[in-house]
Each structure stands twice: as structure tokens, then as C-alpha cells.
Computed example of a mutant assay.
Amino acid sequence: MSVCPDTASIPPLGKGDNLHQQVLASFPLCQLTEEDLAQNPLFCNLLVALSNHVDHTGLTVALKKDLEKTDRDLQAQRLSWLQSESLYRLLQEMIQDHCVRKHRSGTSSEDDKFYDTLERCLLVAQCVRQLDPSSSTTQDQPLLLGLSAQHVLDLMPPEQDVRRMKQRLLMELEGHLKKKCFNILAYYQPDWEDESEGLKNSKLSRLPENLESESKRADALKEKARDSAAQLQRQTHCYLSEVMGCIQILQSLILDYRLKAQRELDRKKVEYLEAKCQIVCCKIRAEMLRLQVDTYTTEKISAHRVIRNKLDTELKAIRAEKQTAESTLSSFEILGQEFEALVEQYSQLRLEIENKRWALKEFSRHSH
């Protein structure tokens, strides 16, 4: 690629928005917007400079010319191959049609001779092309099955039959081509099928021009579709950018209002739970009262009062007895260690007395 000239010497494509639009049109494959070009003027100038050296696909001018020349050569080679291949397939179709007619309704000996000669010539030509690689490579290759092209050429039909076949071939080929052209014309415009042969020939002569014009129109529509696709891609990029901005704004709004609403919602929820808790406590208290009412009737309460009075009286008597015992015990504790020894001796005597009473009782019971 040639060196990029100074940006000051670059002729401006336009001014303002027009410049940006032309730059975007020159580079439809770039993911750019007019806002990007406006924010980066130096990059915009670089794209303007590059637009003088590359096309919309990114190829340089020199490479584009070489590519076009190569494409023309390729098209010429394709056309040459297509002509020979079309002629070969057309001759094969003619031979197949003859075989079908021969099996259906029979054919004349002259037709059989003509097509047999044609088929042998095609077969020999095909074998010669397979055995002679000189047209596709300069290297010597081993012979296939020990055969050479001359061996196959010896299998050609007699020269007289070949000459007769060539004299008739052009007429037969023209008729077959004419029939196929009429079929193509009927497919292209089905309403022309019932017209006269002269009118068909007239329309058939204009068919290549019509097909070429439609091909150009299809190419123009494809180019327009590519431009529309590039424009749609740019618009989609801008649309997605705007949508992302809107989503961010919505997220901030949702977050802000959600926090405010959440605080109020929490307060309402606390109030609701407090009221519900109070109601539950009231229900529990009511159930407890109901259970007490069902459990303690008037008769049971009277009996409980009598029992309580009796228990209170006994409790007072026991407390008085306890107090008396404690005062007696305290008076005994004044005597000290000697009293404890007497108490222990007294306890042993009491225990022995009880044991002897029990033994005497058991002895008296068994003696009877």
C-alpha cells in the first residue's frame, strides 16, 4: 500500500454530518457510528485518507485491479470449459434420446449408423484425453494399463463414416439446441408455449438480452441489499447503544424507587406483624381463660378453698412446731460437745430398744 498523504492535503469529502455519512458509506463493514467519528476527528481523517486507496471491501486499488484481471481470466477459462462441457453433455443427451426412441418406436438404419459413429467418437476422445496428460502437465506419467493415445485412436470408426457423421452432426445439433432453447423459453414464459414457431424464434433471439438485464437487475438488488444490510447493522448498533443507555437509566430508577418503597413496605410489614402478634396473644389469653373456666367450676372452687384453709392451718401449726424445735435445738446446742455425745448414746439406746421390741414381738408371734 502506498504511503498515506498528509491529512492537510486530503480533499475533503464533505463537511459536518455529510463527511461522516460518506466515511461510513466508504467503510460499511466497520462497526462505527457518526458519534464515534465526531468524537475522534483524527481517526475520521485517517479513514478519509484510506478511502482514496481502498474500496468498501478493504482491498487496495492495485490489488483490486489484479483481482479483477484474475477474475476475467478465470471467467474466460470457465467459459471455454463450459462450452466444451456443454457440447459434450449435449451430444450425450442426443445419444440417450436416440436410445430411448430406438427402444420405443424403432429407428432407421441410417440414424443408428450416425449415432453409433458419434458415440464411438466421443468414447475414443474421452479415453484419449484420459491417456494423454500433455494438456494438463509437462511431466511424463506412466501409461495406464500399458495403453497410449495412439492405441485408442486405432479404434476410431472408418474415416468415411466419420465424415458422414460430421456432415449431419451440425444439423442434428442445431435441431437439438433449438428444442432445448424452446424448452427454456417455455419455462421462462409459460404463456409463450402455444405460440407459432416464428414468433418463438423472434422472442428467443431477445431471450439473452432479457436474461442479462434480469441478471443485472438481480446484481443491483444484491448490492442494494448489501448496502441495506450495512445500514441496518449500523442502525442496529446505534439502537442497541440507545437501548443499553435506557436500560441503565431504568435500572437506576428502579433501584432508587425500590429502596424508597422498600422502607415504607418494611414499616407497614412491621405494623402488620405487631398487630398480628397482639391478636395472637389475645387469642392465647382467651383460650387460657376458657380452659380455666371449663376446669374450675363453682363446686371445685369451694372445695379448693376448704382444702386451702385446712392446709394453711396445718402449715401454721407446722411452722409453730418448727419454731419450737429450732428454739429447743438452739438451747441444746449451748451445752456443747458433751451433749452431742449424750444424744448419740441416747440414739443408740433407742435403736437397741427398738430392735429388742421387734425381736420380742417376732418371738411372741412365732411362739403362739
Results as ranks from 00 to 15, higher is better:
residue 97 D to Y: 00
residue 37 L to C: 06
residue 174 E to F: 14
residue 334 I to L: 13
residue 198 G to N: 06
residue 301 I to V: 13
residue 109 S to P: 00
residue 131 L to C: 01
residue 300 K to C: 02
residue 81 W to C: 09
residue 163 R to T: 03
residue 294 D to R: 12
residue 265 L to W: 08
residue 210 N to C: 07
residue 13 L to Y: 01
residue 342 L to E: 14
residue 74 L to I: 04
residue 277 C to F: 01
residue 330 S to A: 06
residue 367 S to L: 07
residue 284 I to N: 14
residue 145 L to Y: 14
residue 21 Q to R: 08
residue 287 E to M: 12
residue 52 N to P: 00
residue 157 P to A: 03
residue 282 C to T: 03
residue 57 T to S: 14
residue 289 L to P: 00
residue 300 K to T: 12
residue 219 D to E: 11
residue 160 Q to H: 08
residue 214 E to T: 07
residue 287 E to Q: 14
residue 337 Q to G: 03
residue 256 D to A: 06
residue 82 L to T: 11
residue 272 Y to V: 06
residue 303 A to Q: 14
residue 49 A to K: 00
residue 6 D to M: 03
residue 277 C to N: 14
residue 125 A to G: 15
residue 269 K to M: 11
residue 367 S to F: 11
residue 139 Q to T: 11
residue 63 L to I: 02
residue 33 T to P: 00
residue 204 L to Y: 09
residue 366 H to V: 12
residue 84 S to V: 07
residue 303 A to C: 08
residue 350 R to M: 09
residue 155 L to T: 11
residue 13 L to V: 07
residue 24 L to T: 13
residue 281 C to S: 10
residue 151 H to D: 15
residue 356 K to V: 13
residue 139 Q to A: 15
residue 42 L to D: 09
residue 355 N to A: 15
residue 44 C to R: 14
residue 190 P to E: 01
residue 365 R to E: 09
residue 111 D to H: 03
residue 95 I to A: 15
residue 258 R to L: 14
residue 234 R to L: 08
residue 321 E to T: 12
residue 286 A to L: 09
residue 109 S to A: 13
residue 33 T to G: 02
residue 192 W to R: 02
residue 153 L to R: 15
residue 207 L to Y: 13
residue 310 K to C: 03
residue 239 Y to S: 08
residue 123 L to R: 13
residue 5 P to T: 04
residue 113 K to N: 10
residue 312 D to S: 07
residue 160 Q to V: 02
residue 205 S to C: 15
residue 59 L to M: 12
residue 78 R to Y: 01
residue 279 I to K: 08
residue 79 L to K: 08
residue 124 V to H: 01
residue 295 T to I: 10
residue 299 E to A: 15
residue 51 S to A: 09
residue 13 L to H: 01
residue 219 D to Y: 11
residue 233 Q to D: 02
residue 50 L to H: 02
residue 164 R to P: 03
residue 276 K to F: 13
residue 104 R to C: 06
residue 75 Q to R: 13
residue 344 E to K: 09
residue 109 S to G: 01
residue 72 R to W: 02
residue 175 G to I: 05
residue 54 V to Y: 11
residue 234 R to F: 10
residue 304 H to P: 00
residue 130 Q to D: 03
residue 342 L to C: 09
residue 318 I to A: 07
residue 296 Y to E: 09
residue 202 S to I: 08
residue 122 L to R: 08
residue 239 Y to N: 12
residue 120 R to K: 12
residue 257 Y to V: 01
residue 76 A to E: 12
residue 214 E to M: 10
residue 80 S to I: 07
residue 135 S to D: 08
residue 113 K to M: 06
residue 84 S to H: 06
residue 10 I to Y: 05
residue 92 Q to P: 12
residue 316 K to F: 07
residue 199 L to V: 06
residue 204 L to N: 05
residue 296 Y to K: 10
residue 113 K to F: 00
residue 350 R to F: 05
residue 221 L to R: 04
residue 205 S to N: 15
residue 36 D to W: 02
residue 343 V to F: 07
residue 334 I to N: 03
residue 17 D to Y: 01
residue 164 R to N: 09
residue 342 L to M: 14
residue 190 P to Y: 04
residue 15 K to I: 05
residue 251 Q to F: 05
residue 301 I to E: 02
residue 155 L to A: 11
